[in-house]
């Protein structure tokens, strides 16, 4: 197991180096120029050339990459072109906000999916199950930006229960309650798609398990529904947890639009703004950090999977 973790950790190095290369090259391929966001639209070519030189954008590509990488290895992610702030500082602040959003949104979605999924596996032909299926399909099919606008319209504008956007109420003392109120809508929207996908996976996993021989045996022995469910649950959880872990990636992706609509200062919004302003250091740093998170989450999921499922653990025992 330890060997395996070591192996996976080492494997992260070439993956992340690959990411830096891809991000760097693609940054150069998109048309546009960060200089445009620093100088006036009427600026002369000389003014633009001077700023390019200051930003080091007139160096050969290889040199630019080399400078960026050597700074990275010293923990220096550079300075944002448009925000004039340290990139790592910007990104870590944003990452914290995104983490709150997707962990709360994901956890809520996972719980709802677990309840709906297991229920519909147990009672496949009830009306409640059909309703749950419709809900599941809707959450996957509804575009989350649309859902976001509808929820704002209903809960914020019409009913006035929840704030429309942001993390704080301007002009009021900030409090945890106020913050949680701001969290409800964006977290719901972020988790929406996950409800649908997770429900399907949980249901099919549990449907399969309920058909297994051990369930039949338990039934034959006269065990009650609750006891049977405990056994099924124990067997069904590992694969479901793995998928749930991998869902973090899609939650992260879905947060980009959600954060923009709800003005939530997370990493998705920071990246979105950086891309539309061609803020190269922020784009590069942001994607690198997001990739790092993704790879790390995958590693954790695999390790936890091994931990809860003895079969996997056994197969890993000999190392990689």
């Amino acid at each position: 197991m330890l060997n395996y973790i070591m192996y996976r950790l080492l494997l992260m190095i070439p993956i992340l180096i690959g990411v830096t290369l891809v991000v760097f090259v693609f940054n150069q391929l998109i048309p546009g120029d960060p200089v445009d966001f620093l100088v006036d639209i009427d600026a002369t070519e000389e003014e633009r050339a001077w700023v390019r030189n200051y930003l080091g954008l007139d160096e050969p590509l290889f040199t630019q990459y080399y400078i960026w990488m050597s700074n990275l290895l010293h923990g220096d992610f550079g300075v944002s072109v448009t925000k004039q702030a340290d990139v790592l500082y910007l990104l870590l602040g944003a990452l914290k906000n995104t983490a709150i959003l997707i962990l709360v949104g994901g956890a809520m979605a996972f719980l709802i999916a677990l309840i709906i999924g297991i229920f519909s596996a147990l009672y496949p032909s009830s009306i409640a199950t059909s309703m749950a299926n419709i809900l599941g399909i809707s959450t996957v099919s509804i575009p989350n930006f649309w859902a976001a606008l509808m929820l704002i319209g209903l809960f914020s504008v019409t009913l006035g229960w929840l704030p429309t956007s942001g993390m704080i109420t301007s002009g009021k003392e900030s409090s945890t309650a106020d913050f949680l109120m701001h969290l409800v809508l964006p977290a719901t929207v972020v988790g929406l798609t996950t409800i649908g996908t997770m429900t399907r996976i949980i249901r099919s996993t549990f449907v399969d398990l309920l058909k297994q021989d051990f369930v039949l045996t338990l039934r034959a022995k006269g065990q009650g529904q609750g006891n049977i469910l405990m056994h099924v649950f124990k067997n069904g959880l590992p694969p479901v947890l793995v998928i749930a872990g991998l869902e973090i990636g899609s939650l992260l992706g879905g947060s980009v639009i959600t954060e923009s609509i709800f003005n939530w200062p997370g990493i998705g919004k920071v990246l979105y703004d950086a891309i539309s302003q061609r803020d190269y250091p922020v784009i590069q740093g942001g994607i690198l950090i997001t990739s790092f998170m993704f790879v790390t989450v995958n590693l954790i999921v695999d390790v936890v999977h091994g931990f809860v499922d003895p079969r996997i653990r056994k197969s890993l025992k000999g190392g990689a």
């Binding site: 704002i152 914020s156 704030p163 956007s165 923009s260």
Partner: peptide
Amino acid sequence: PEPSTRVAALLAKE
């Protein structure tokens, strides 16, 4: 930056 966000915030008196 989102026009709909601004209008919603205004209607909600934020």
